[in-house]
C-alpha cells in the first residue's frame, strides 16, 4: 500500500469545455449573470417608477423594450427580474444543496439504520407537492421571495440527497477510502475530506437543473401573487400584467416570455454540457 489511488478528477477546465461544446449555453448564462449582477447599473430607467403618461408604449428609442401599463420601463424591469431570478436560484440551490448533500452524504456514507431512516425522510420530502408546500408556507408567513423559495428549496432537497447518497455508496468501499480508514480517520472526517470533494461534479449538474426549476417556480409563484411583492419586478408578475394587455400590447408578454425561456434554456444546456464533461472525465 504505497500509493493511494484517487478517482480521476476533471483535468481540463470545465469552463473551456462548455465554451467549446455548448457556446449557446455559455452565452445565455453569461448574459443572465451579467443582467443579474449588474442589472441595477445597466438599467436605463428606474425599475419601479411609474409614469402613466408613457404607459403601454411599444419598443422605441427611449424605452428599448417599451413600457408596461403603468409606464414602467420593460427593459429595466427585466434586468431587475433577472436579479430576482438569480436570488431564487441561490436560495433554492443553497437550501436544497446544503441540506440534500448533508442528508445524502451521511445516509450513503454511514449506511445501515441511518441510511434507512434518512432515505425514508427524503422520500417523504419528495412526496410533498412543491406548489402546495410553497403556498402553505407563504400563507402562514407572508408572501415574499425568500419564503416562497425556501419552500421550493425544500422540494429540491431529495434531488441533491439522492445524488449525494449514490456517490457516497459507490465510493464507500473504494481503495482510497479504505486506506483513509486504515490510517485511522474518523468516518465523519472521511465523508468531509474524501467523499464530498468527489461528488462536486454531479452536484453542480443537479444545481444547474434545480436552479433552472427554481427560476420557473419563482415565476409561477409570482404569477399567482405569492412571490415577489410589488413594486419590485419579477418575471412572473410581469407576465401576469402583460397577459391583461395581450391583445393591446402583445410585445410585453412576448419579451418577458422569451427572456424566461432563454434563461431556462441556457441553464439546462449548461447542465447537459457539465453532465457530458463529468461523464467524459470519469471514464
Amino acid at each position: 500500500m504505497t500509493e493511494i489511488s484517487t478517482p480521476v478528477r476533471p483535468q481540463s477546465g470545465a469552463v473551456s469545455y462548455i465554451l467549446r461544446r455548448s457556446p449557446v449555453a455559455a452565452l445565455l448564462v453569461a448574459l443572465f449573470l451579467i443582467a443579474a449582477l449588474l442589472g441595477p447599473w445597466l438599467a436605463p430607467h428606474s425599475m419601479t417608477d411609474t409614469n402613466l403618461g408613457h404607459a403601454l408604449q411599444p419598443p422605441n428609442a427611449t424605452y428599448w423594450l417599451g413600457t408596461d401599463a403603468l409606464g414602467r420601463d420593460v427593459l429595466s424591469r427585466l434586468l431587475g427580474s433577472a436579479g430576482i431570478a438569480a436570488q431564487a436560484f441561490l436560495i433554492v440551490v443553497l437550501t436544497g444543496g446544503v441540506l440534500g448533500t448533508l442528508f445524502g452524504l451521511v445516509a450513503g456514507g454511514i449506511g445501515g439504520l441511518t441510511d434507512l431512516v434518512l432515505s425514508r425522510v427524503i422520500e417523504i420530502l419528495q412526496g410533498f407537492p412543491t406548489v402546495l408546500v410553497a403556498i402553505v408556507i407563504v400563507a402562514l408567513l407572508s408572501p415574499s421571495l425568500t419564503n416562497a423559495m425556501i419552500a421550493v428549496g425544500l422540494a429540491a432537497v431529495p434531488d441533491f440527497a439522492r445524488v449525494a447518497r449514490g456517490v457516497a455508496i459507490q465510493l464507500r468501499e473504494r481503495e482510497f477510502i479504505q486506506a483513509a480508514r486504515g490510517l485511522g480517520m474518523s468516518e465523519m472526517r472521511i465523508l468531509a475530506s474524501e467523499v464530498l470533494p468527489n461528488m462536486v461534479g454531479p452536484l453542480i449538474i443537479i444545481a444547474s437543473f434545480d436552479g433552472a426549476q427554481a427560476i420557473m417556480w419563482e415565476a409561477a409563484l409570482s404569477f399567482l401573487g405569492l412571490g415577489v411583492q410589488p413594486p419590485y419586478p419579477s418575471f412572473g408578475s410581469m407576465l401576469r400584467e402583460a397577459q391583461n394587455f395581450l391583445a393591446i400590447q402583445p410585445s410585453l408578454a412576448i419579451t418577458v416570455g422569451l427572456t424566461v425561456s432563454a434563461i431556462i434554456l441556457g441553464l439546462n444546456l449548461l447542465g447537459d454540457g457539465l453532465s457530458d464533461y463529468y461523464d467524459r472525465s470519469d471514464k
Binding site: 404607459a55 419598443p59 422605441n60 428609442a61 417599451g66 400590447q249 410585445s251
Partner: peptide
Amino acid sequence: MTKPTKTGLAGAAV
C-alpha cells in the same frame, strides 16, 4: 412588429 408611437394608444391597440 410595432412601430414606435408617442401617444397613439388606441391606434396601437387596433
